[in-house]
Protein backbone atom coordinates (compact mmCIF):
# COMPACT_ATOMS: atom_id res chain seq x y z
CA UNK A 1 0.00 0.00 0.00
CA UNK A 2 0.97 3.63 -0.43
CA UNK A 3 1.33 3.96 3.29
CA UNK A 4 4.49 1.92 3.25
CA UNK A 5 6.63 4.42 1.37
CA UNK A 6 9.85 5.11 3.20
CA UNK A 7 11.42 7.94 1.23
CA UNK A 8 12.80 10.56 3.54
CA UNK A 9 11.59 8.67 6.56
CA UNK A 10 12.73 9.92 9.89
CA UNK A 11 13.62 7.54 12.71
CA UNK A 12 13.21 9.32 15.99
CA UNK A 13 16.04 8.60 18.36
CA UNK A 14 18.48 10.18 20.72
CA UNK A 15 21.83 9.03 19.38
CA UNK A 16 24.82 11.28 19.01
CA UNK A 17 24.04 11.70 15.33
CA UNK A 18 20.42 12.59 16.09
CA UNK A 19 21.52 15.29 18.48
CA UNK A 20 23.90 17.04 16.10
CA UNK A 21 22.85 20.49 14.96
CA UNK A 22 21.00 20.01 11.66
CA UNK A 23 22.90 22.87 10.04
CA UNK A 24 26.15 21.10 10.80
CA UNK A 25 24.70 17.84 9.61
CA UNK A 26 23.85 19.35 6.24
CA UNK A 27 27.30 20.88 5.86
CA UNK A 28 28.90 17.62 6.94
CA UNK A 29 26.82 15.68 4.43
CA UNK A 30 27.92 18.03 1.68
CA UNK A 31 31.57 17.52 2.63
CA UNK A 32 30.92 13.79 2.72
CA UNK A 33 29.55 13.86 -0.82
CA UNK A 34 32.59 15.83 -1.95
CA UNK A 35 34.76 13.23 -0.28
CA UNK A 36 33.11 10.41 -2.23
CA UNK A 37 33.61 12.22 -5.49
CA UNK A 38 37.17 13.43 -4.92
CA UNK A 39 38.81 10.06 -4.73
CA UNK A 40 38.89 8.21 -8.01
CA UNK A 41 39.98 4.80 -6.82
CA UNK A 42 38.67 1.99 -4.71
CA UNK A 43 41.16 2.41 -1.90
CA UNK A 44 40.13 5.97 -1.24
CA UNK A 45 36.51 4.94 -1.15
CA UNK A 46 37.49 2.64 1.69
CA UNK A 47 38.14 5.73 3.80
CA UNK A 48 34.61 6.89 2.96
CA UNK A 49 33.28 3.44 3.83
CA UNK A 50 34.97 3.43 7.21
CA UNK A 51 33.59 6.90 7.92
CA UNK A 52 30.09 5.82 6.87
CA UNK A 53 30.14 2.67 8.98
CA UNK A 54 31.26 4.57 12.07
CA UNK A 55 28.48 7.11 11.56
CA UNK A 56 25.89 4.40 10.96
CA UNK A 57 27.04 2.61 14.11
CA UNK A 58 26.78 5.81 16.14
CA UNK A 59 23.29 6.53 14.82
CA UNK A 60 21.93 3.24 16.26
CA UNK A 61 19.80 2.82 13.17
CA UNK A 62 19.59 -0.81 12.07
CA UNK A 63 21.49 -1.65 8.87
CA UNK A 64 18.25 -3.13 7.56
CA UNK A 65 16.90 0.39 7.15
CA UNK A 66 19.80 1.36 4.92
CA UNK A 67 19.25 -1.75 2.84
CA UNK A 68 15.66 -0.58 2.42
CA UNK A 69 16.76 2.72 0.91
CA UNK A 70 19.37 1.08 -1.34
CA UNK A 71 17.07 -1.66 -2.57
CA UNK A 72 14.84 0.39 -4.90
CA UNK A 73 17.94 1.59 -6.77
CA UNK A 74 19.38 -1.89 -7.26
CA UNK A 75 17.99 -2.47 -10.77
CA UNK A 76 19.41 0.86 -11.88
CA UNK A 77 22.76 0.04 -10.29
CA UNK A 78 22.91 -3.36 -11.90
CA UNK A 79 22.02 -2.11 -15.36
CA UNK A 80 24.68 0.63 -15.26
CA UNK A 81 27.18 -1.86 -13.86
CA UNK A 82 26.49 -4.32 -16.67
CA UNK A 83 26.75 -1.57 -19.27
CA UNK A 84 30.03 -0.41 -17.76
CA UNK A 85 31.40 -3.93 -17.71
CA UNK A 86 30.43 -4.57 -21.30
CA UNK A 87 31.30 -1.23 -22.83
CA UNK A 88 34.32 0.14 -20.98
CA UNK A 89 37.45 -0.85 -22.83
CA UNK A 90 40.60 -0.60 -20.73
CA UNK A 91 43.05 -2.91 -19.00
CA UNK A 92 43.18 -6.68 -19.51
CA UNK A 93 40.59 -8.22 -21.76
CA UNK A 94 38.86 -11.23 -20.19
CA UNK A 95 36.17 -11.84 -22.77
CA UNK A 96 35.29 -10.53 -26.18
CA UNK A 97 32.25 -10.84 -28.42
CA UNK A 98 31.76 -8.49 -31.35
CA UNK A 99 31.98 -4.97 -29.90
CA UNK A 100 31.31 -6.19 -26.36
CA UNK A 101 34.33 -6.66 -24.16
CA UNK A 102 34.78 -7.53 -20.54
CA UNK A 103 37.92 -5.86 -19.29
CA UNK A 104 39.55 -5.36 -15.92
CA UNK A 105 38.97 -1.63 -16.30
CA UNK A 106 35.24 -2.14 -16.83
CA UNK A 107 34.96 -4.37 -13.79
CA UNK A 108 36.90 -1.88 -11.71
CA UNK A 109 34.70 0.98 -12.76
CA UNK A 110 31.51 -1.01 -12.10
CA UNK A 111 32.54 -2.07 -8.65
CA UNK A 112 33.78 1.42 -7.87
CA UNK A 113 30.57 3.01 -9.04
CA UNK A 114 28.38 0.63 -7.08
CA UNK A 115 30.29 1.24 -3.88
CA UNK A 116 30.27 4.98 -4.40
CA UNK A 117 26.53 5.14 -5.01
CA UNK A 118 25.71 2.82 -2.14
CA UNK A 119 27.82 4.98 0.17
CA UNK A 120 26.17 8.08 -1.20
CA UNK A 121 22.72 6.69 -0.49
CA UNK A 122 23.72 5.49 2.95
CA UNK A 123 25.17 8.86 3.88
CA UNK A 124 22.22 10.90 2.72
CA UNK A 125 19.77 8.41 4.25
CA UNK A 126 21.63 8.86 7.49
CA UNK A 127 20.89 12.57 7.29
CA UNK A 128 17.17 12.05 6.71
CA UNK A 129 16.86 9.13 9.14
CA UNK A 130 18.35 11.12 11.99
CA UNK A 131 16.87 14.54 11.20
CA UNK A 132 13.16 15.18 11.03
CA UNK A 133 12.13 16.73 7.71
CA UNK A 134 10.90 19.81 9.50
CA UNK A 135 14.22 20.32 11.28
CA UNK A 136 15.94 19.83 7.99
CA UNK A 137 13.84 22.50 6.30
CA UNK A 138 14.47 24.78 9.20
CA UNK A 139 18.22 24.25 8.95
CA UNK A 140 18.16 24.88 5.20
CA UNK A 141 16.25 28.09 5.80
CA UNK A 142 18.87 29.25 8.26
CA UNK A 143 21.80 28.20 6.10
CA UNK A 144 20.31 30.07 3.17
CA UNK A 145 19.27 33.13 5.17
CA UNK A 146 22.17 35.28 3.86
CA UNK A 147 20.43 35.05 0.48
CA UNK A 148 17.58 37.15 1.91
CA UNK A 149 19.79 40.15 1.32
CA UNK A 150 19.56 39.40 -2.37
CA UNK A 151 15.74 39.42 -2.09
CA UNK A 152 15.69 35.66 -2.46
CA UNK A 153 12.43 34.39 -0.81
CA UNK A 154 14.12 32.07 1.66
CA UNK A 155 11.36 32.14 4.26
CA UNK A 156 8.60 31.58 1.71
CA UNK A 157 10.41 28.61 0.22
CA UNK A 158 11.01 27.09 3.63
CA UNK A 159 7.37 27.64 4.58
CA UNK A 160 6.26 25.94 1.37
CA UNK A 161 8.57 23.05 2.05
CA UNK A 162 7.39 22.58 5.61
CA UNK A 163 3.71 22.75 4.63
CA UNK A 164 4.36 20.25 1.87
CA UNK A 165 6.01 17.96 4.42
CA UNK A 166 3.13 18.43 6.80
CA UNK A 167 0.61 17.39 4.15
CA UNK A 168 2.45 14.42 2.64
CA UNK A 169 0.93 11.89 5.07
CA UNK A 170 -2.49 13.51 4.77
CA UNK A 171 -2.45 13.35 0.99
CA UNK A 172 -1.14 9.80 0.92
CA UNK A 173 -3.99 8.75 3.15
CA UNK A 174 -6.42 10.65 0.97
CA UNK A 175 -5.12 9.04 -2.22
CA UNK A 176 -5.46 5.64 -0.63
CA UNK A 177 -9.06 6.39 0.27
CA UNK A 178 -10.02 7.72 -3.14
CA UNK A 179 -8.39 4.72 -4.82
CA UNK A 180 -10.37 2.34 -2.65
CA UNK A 181 -13.56 4.27 -3.30
CA UNK A 182 -13.12 4.17 -7.07
CA UNK A 183 -12.12 0.51 -6.96
CA UNK A 184 -15.37 -0.11 -5.13
CA UNK A 185 -17.08 1.39 -8.17
CA UNK A 186 -15.28 -1.05 -10.41
CA UNK A 187 -12.42 1.19 -11.57
CA UNK A 188 -9.49 -0.90 -12.74
CA UNK A 189 -6.34 0.77 -11.55
CA UNK A 190 -3.83 -2.05 -11.56
CA UNK A 191 -5.34 -4.01 -14.42
CA UNK A 192 -7.13 -3.32 -17.69
CA UNK A 193 -5.99 -1.73 -20.93
CA UNK A 194 -3.91 1.41 -21.05
CA UNK A 195 -6.90 3.55 -21.99
CA UNK A 196 -9.14 2.33 -19.19
CA UNK A 197 -6.31 2.75 -16.75
CA UNK A 198 -5.65 6.30 -17.93
CA UNK A 199 -9.35 7.08 -17.61
CA UNK A 200 -9.37 5.58 -14.17
CA UNK A 201 -6.36 7.63 -13.12
CA UNK A 202 -8.52 10.67 -13.87
CA UNK A 203 -11.09 9.36 -11.42
CA UNK A 204 -8.39 9.54 -8.77
CA UNK A 205 -6.55 12.69 -9.79
CA UNK A 206 -9.59 14.94 -10.16
CA UNK A 207 -10.90 14.35 -6.63
CA UNK A 208 -7.37 14.57 -5.27
CA UNK A 209 -6.81 17.95 -6.90
CA UNK A 210 -10.15 19.27 -5.77
CA UNK A 211 -9.54 18.22 -2.22
CA UNK A 212 -6.01 19.63 -2.25
CA UNK A 213 -7.28 23.01 -3.37
CA UNK A 214 -9.95 22.91 -0.71
CA UNK A 215 -7.33 22.09 1.90
CA UNK A 216 -5.05 24.84 0.63
CA UNK A 217 -7.86 27.34 0.84
CA UNK A 218 -8.85 26.34 4.36
CA UNK A 219 -5.24 26.25 5.52
CA UNK A 220 -4.63 29.74 4.14
CA UNK A 221 -7.62 31.05 6.10
CA UNK A 222 -6.48 29.28 9.25
CA UNK A 223 -2.98 30.74 8.86
CA UNK A 224 -4.39 34.21 8.40
CA UNK A 225 -6.45 33.77 11.53
CA UNK A 226 -3.24 33.05 13.36
CA UNK A 227 -1.74 36.29 12.20
CA UNK A 228 0.56 34.91 9.51
CA UNK A 229 2.13 37.77 7.65
CA UNK A 230 5.19 36.38 5.89
CA UNK A 231 8.67 36.07 7.35
CA UNK A 232 9.00 39.64 8.57
CA UNK A 233 9.62 39.94 12.30
CA UNK A 234 8.99 36.28 13.04
CA UNK A 235 10.53 34.60 16.05
CA UNK A 236 11.05 30.86 16.34
CA UNK A 237 10.16 28.26 18.92
CA UNK A 238 12.83 25.95 17.57
CA UNK A 239 16.17 27.23 18.73
CA UNK A 240 19.29 25.92 17.10
CA UNK A 241 22.43 26.16 19.15
CA UNK A 242 25.71 24.74 18.01
CA UNK A 243 27.45 22.68 20.69
CA UNK A 244 31.13 21.64 20.91
CA UNK A 245 30.15 18.20 19.60
CA UNK A 246 28.99 19.79 16.33
CA UNK A 247 32.36 21.41 15.80
CA UNK A 248 34.13 18.18 16.71
CA UNK A 249 32.00 16.25 14.22
CA UNK A 250 32.82 18.78 11.54
CA UNK A 251 36.55 18.59 12.30
CA UNK A 252 36.49 14.79 12.21
CA UNK A 253 34.74 14.89 8.86
CA UNK A 254 37.32 17.29 7.51
CA UNK A 255 40.10 15.00 8.76
CA UNK A 256 38.50 12.08 6.92
CA UNK A 257 38.19 14.25 3.84
CA UNK A 258 41.87 15.13 4.05
CA UNK A 259 42.69 11.47 4.60
CA UNK A 260 40.70 10.51 1.52
CA UNK A 261 42.60 13.02 -0.57
CA UNK A 262 45.92 11.89 0.89
CA UNK A 263 45.20 8.23 0.31
CA UNK A 264 44.11 9.02 -3.19
CA UNK A 265 47.36 10.86 -3.96
CA UNK A 266 49.53 8.20 -2.37
CA UNK A 267 47.68 5.49 -4.27
CA UNK A 268 48.12 7.34 -7.52
CA UNK A 269 51.85 7.74 -6.90
CA UNK A 270 52.22 4.06 -6.01
CA UNK A 271 50.38 2.76 -9.05
CA UNK A 272 52.18 4.96 -11.50
Amino acid sequence: MLRDVTIGQYFPGNSLIHRLDPRFKIVITLIYILMLFTGSNVVCLAVGAVYTLIAVYLSRIPLKMFWKSVKPLLPFLLITAVLNILLVDSGDVYFKWKFLKITSGGINISVFMIIRIVLLIMGSSLLTYTTSPITLTDAIERLLSPLKLLKFPVHELAMMMSIALRFVPTLIEETDKIMSAQKARGAEIDTGSFMTRAKNMISILVPLFISSFRRADELATAMECRCYNGGEGRTRLRQLRAAPRDVIALVITLIFYAAAIAVSIVFKLLTQ
Binding site: I178, Q182, K183, E188, I202, S203, P207, I210
Partner: peptide, 19 residues
Protein backbone atom coordinates in the same frame (compact mmCIF):
# COMPACT_ATOMS: atom_id res chain seq x y z
CA UNK B 1 -14.27 -7.16 -9.49
CA UNK B 2 -17.66 -8.87 -9.84
CA UNK B 3 -17.84 -9.10 -6.10
CA UNK B 4 -17.42 -5.32 -5.91
CA UNK B 5 -20.42 -4.86 -8.16
CA UNK B 6 -22.50 -7.19 -6.02
CA UNK B 7 -21.43 -5.66 -2.74
CA UNK B 8 -21.55 -1.89 -3.12
CA UNK B 9 -19.47 0.08 -0.68
CA UNK B 10 -20.02 3.78 -0.04
CA UNK B 11 -17.11 5.29 1.85
CA UNK B 12 -17.16 8.03 4.43
CA UNK B 13 -17.51 11.51 2.93
CA UNK B 14 -18.13 9.94 -0.49
CA UNK B 15 -18.71 13.35 -2.11
CA UNK B 16 -14.93 13.72 -2.23
CA UNK B 17 -14.69 10.95 -4.82
CA UNK B 18 -16.91 12.70 -7.36
CA UNK B 19 -14.98 13.57 -10.51
Amino acid sequence: RDVRFQVGLVFQYPEYQIF
